[in-house]
Amino acid sequence: MCQKIRMENVAIVLHDTRIPENIGAAARAAANMGVGQLIVSAPRHLDMERVLKVATHSASGLVKAMKVCSTLPEALGGFNWIVGTTARLGGTRRVNSSPADLAAKLIPMSSENRVAVLFGPEDRGLTNEDLQLCHELVNIPTAGFSSLNLAQAVMVMCYELFQARTRAPECHIPRLACRHELENMYEELKETFARIHYINHENPEHRLDKARNFLSRYQLRAREVSIIRGLCRQVVRYGSQCYKDGAAAGAAGSPKNQETG
């Protein structure tokens, strides 16, 4: 029996779009392939009449149910696995999957997890800061000219997801921590690193980026995120207690206290 991706658990997220017609065309592509949800994050100009005109009647339901968010973290907060799309390669942009490889990987992932495929603005794509919210990156190979129209890129990704099949039994992937849970963990890590002077206070994001890259290699579950956050709190409590004990010992051993004794 063939296994397929649960398309109802997949969402297309369009961030910082400039042109309403591109939203409509992307919605049409997503609807053609059975994608369950469309989310628009921080659109520059959201003219629903222009969006619906391009989406046509077939995708009007997806557009009318579309969620509009003011920030990208808000848009991604409830997702357990986030895939960022990028045309630019190299540097910190380590692409882990091709569209077909990604689709096969998401078959077991989509069973109990909400998956977001994230696209950036038409003129420049996702920034490095945007990509920090992603678990992995995917690149659509081209014959040289790497820039695709937004709706074209959405169609390629949705087609590969729709076509993905596997006959081999896949390992079960339980519910993973959502983006909101992960961001709370990273914020607590950042505060802990600062308290124990593990990071440079002038550039705290540098060390945190390395922690993000390390932890993103693992499919962290909610309880594992809770363990890491609990460890952070314990480190801070232990450090504070050591400081208090040291201050008390110093005060007790001061010359003034010795004379009084």
Rank of each mutant, 00 (worst) to 15 (best):
M1Q: 00
I5M: 07
R6A: 10
N9I: 06
V10W: 09
T17V: 12
R18G: 03
R18K: 11
P20Q: 06
N22K: 10
A25W: 03
A25V: 04
A25L: 14
A26S: 15
G36E: 00
G36K: 01
Q37E: 08
S41K: 09
S41Y: 08
H45S: 05
L46F: 14
M48R: 02
V51G: 03
V51I: 00
K53R: 14
S58W: 04
G61D: 02
L62T: 11
S70Y: 07
L76C: 12
G78D: 12
N80K: 07
W81V: 04
T86H: 01
L89F: 01
T92R: 09
V95A: 06
N96W: 03
S98E: 08
L102A: 03
A104M: 11
K105D: 05
L106C: 01
I107K: 05
N113C: 11
A116K: 07
P121V: 02
G125D: 12
L126D: 02
T127P: 00
E129M: 06
D130Q: 06
L133W: 04
C134A: 13
F145D: 02
S147K: 04
L150A: 07
Q152F: 06
A153H: 12
V154S: 10
V156T: 13
M157T: 09
L161G: 10
P169D: 10
E170C: 11
L176C: 10
C178F: 05
R179V: 10
H180K: 10
N184F: 05
M185K: 05
M185I: 07
M185W: 04
L189E: 03
T192N: 11
F193T: 09
A194F: 10
R195I: 11
H197M: 13
P204A: 07
P204H: 03
R207F: 12
D209L: 07
D209Y: 01
D209Q: 12
A211W: 08
F214I: 05
Y218M: 13
Y218P: 00
Q219E: 12
R223Y: 14
R223E: 15
S226C: 06
R229M: 15
R229H: 11
L231D: 10
R233M: 13
R233A: 14
V236I: 15
Q241Y: 15
K244D: 15
G246E: 13
A249H: 08
G250Y: 07
A251S: 09
P255K: 05
K256W: 03
K256H: 02
N257Y: 05
G261F: 06
